[in-house]
C-alpha cells in the first residue's frame, strides 16, 4: 500500500505532506469503489438486459423517490465530509508559526532569487534548516509565476506587485525539487530551483561561507556551476546556438556590436558590467530582457563565471 502511495505521489518532505497524502489515498479508494460500482452496474444491466428480440415492450419504471433520495443524500454526506477534511488541513498548513524563518523569494523570467534574514542572497538554491517552520514571502518582478515544492505538497502563485506567503516545515533532509507551476513563457519549464534541507549546523555554516564547494573548486568548475544553477543557461547557450541572449561560446575576446552603434572587445570588465547592469549595452539582434544580478554573486562566483566563459572557445 505504501509503495502505491509512493509511486503515485512521490517523496514526502514534511509531516503535512503525509496529511495530504492520507486524504489523497482516501479519495483514491473512494473513487475506485464508486467507479467499480458504476462499471459493475453498467456492464451488468447492459448485458443482462441485452436485446434478445426486436420490438418488445418494456416495463414503465419512471422513477423511485426512495432510490433517488438515496443516491443524492449519500454522495452529499460523503462530499461534505471531504470538504471539512480538506479545508481543515488547508487552514492548518496556511498559518505560519511565530518562530518561522522568513525568507524572501523573487520570481522573474526565468529564475528564483532568495534573500535570507541575514542578508545572504542566492539564486536557484534555497537552503533551510530541517524541522523548523519556514515562511516564504514571495513576489514577482514581471508576470505571474508559481512556487511549487511537490515534496511539501505546497504551492502558491507569485504575483507582481503583491506579497504572498507559503509555509512549510521540512522534516526530511536533502535536496527537494522546486518548479514554476504558473505558465510564464519561453523557459517556464526550466524555471526550477533546488530546496536544500540542511541540519541546523550545516545551515548556519552555509549562511556564513556559502556553498562549501566554492572554497576548493577550480574557478572554471565554479563558473560552470554558477552557469547551471543561477539561470544563465535558460538564455545563454554554450554551443554557439542563438537563444534569448548571446551564446557564451567564443564570447571572450570577441568584438560585440551594440544597438547604440558602439562596440567592444569582450573582457572581464564587460562581463561584470553585463551581469550587474545588463541594460547598459545591448548586443544587436537581442532584446533587453536580462534582469540584473547585482549583489547576487559572491566574488569567487563572479571569477568563476569569467573563467568559464574564457574556457568556452
Amino acid at each position: 500500500m505504501d509503495s502505491l502511495k509512493h509511486w503515485m505521489l512521490g517523496p514526502q518532505g514534511s509531516a503535512y505532506a503525509n496529511d495530504v497524502d492520507v486524504l489523497y489515498m482516501f479519495l483514491v479508494w473512494l473513487s475506485v469503489f464508486f467507479f467499480a460500482l458504476i462499471v459493475f452496474l453498467t456492464v451488468y444491466f447492459a448485458w443482462k438486459y441485452r436485446r434478445r428480440k426486436e420490438g418488445v415492450l418494456t416495463p414503465n419504471i419512471s422513477h423511485n423517490l426512495a432510490l433517488e433520495l438515496l443516491w443524492s443524500i449519500i454522495p452529499l454526506i460523503i462530499v461534505m465530509g471531504i470538504f471539512f477534511w480538506g479545508f481543515n488541513d488547508y487552514v492548518r498548513a496556511s498559518v505560519p508559526p511565530n518562530d518561522a524563518i522568513e525568507i524572501h523569494v523573487t520570481g522573474k523570467k526565468w529564475l528564483w532569487a532568495f534573500e535570507y534574514p541575514d542578508g545572504t542572497r542566492t539564486i536557484g538554491n534555497l537552503h533551510v534548516p530541517v524541522n523548523r517552520p519556514v515562511k516564504l514571502i514571495l513576489t514577482s518582478e514581471d508576470v505571474l509565476h508559481d512556487f511549487y515544492i511537490p515534496s511539501m505538497r505546497q504551492k502558491t502563485d507569485v504575483i507582481p506587485g503583491r506579497f504572498v506567503d507559503l509555509t512549510f516545515t521540512p522534516t526530511v533532509a536533502g535536496r527537494h525539487q522546486v518548479f514554476c507551476a504558473e505558465y510564464c513563457g519561453k523557459s517556464h519549464s526550466d524555471m526550477m530551483a533546488n530546496l536544500f534541507v540542511d541540519s541546523p549546523e550545516v545551515y548556519e555554516k552555509w549562511l556564513i561561507e556559502g556553498d562549501p564547494e566554492l572554497q576548493t573548486m577550480p574557478p572554471v568548475e565554479v563558473g560552470k556551476m554558477v552557469y547551471e544553477n543561477k539561470g544563465c543557461n535558460s538564455c545563454h547557450s554554450i554551443d554557439g546556438s542563438k537563444n534569448t541572449g548571446p551564446s557564451f561560446k567564443g564570447l571572450y575576446g570577441r568584438v560585440e556590436k551594440f544597438t547604440d552603434g558602439t562596440s567592444i572587445t569582450v573582457d572581464d570588465n564587460y562581463i561584470v558590467e553585463s551581469i550587474n547592469n545588463p541594460q547598459a549595452k545591448i548586443v544587436t539582434g537581442y532584446e533587453p530582457v536580462m534582469p540584473t544580478f547585482q549583489g547576487l554573486l559572491r566574488i569567487p562566483e563572479m571569477r568563476g563565471i569569467i573563467a568559464y566563459i574564457k574556457e568556452l572557445k
Binding site: 479519495l27 473512494l30 480538506g86 511537490p150 505538497r153
Partner: peptide
Amino acid sequence: GLTGIFLGAVSVDIHLHDT
C-alpha cells in the same frame, strides 16, 4: 467526476493545481 472531488478538496488541490 470522481477526480473532480480530489480537486474540490482545498488541501489536495493545492498540491494538484496546475499539474
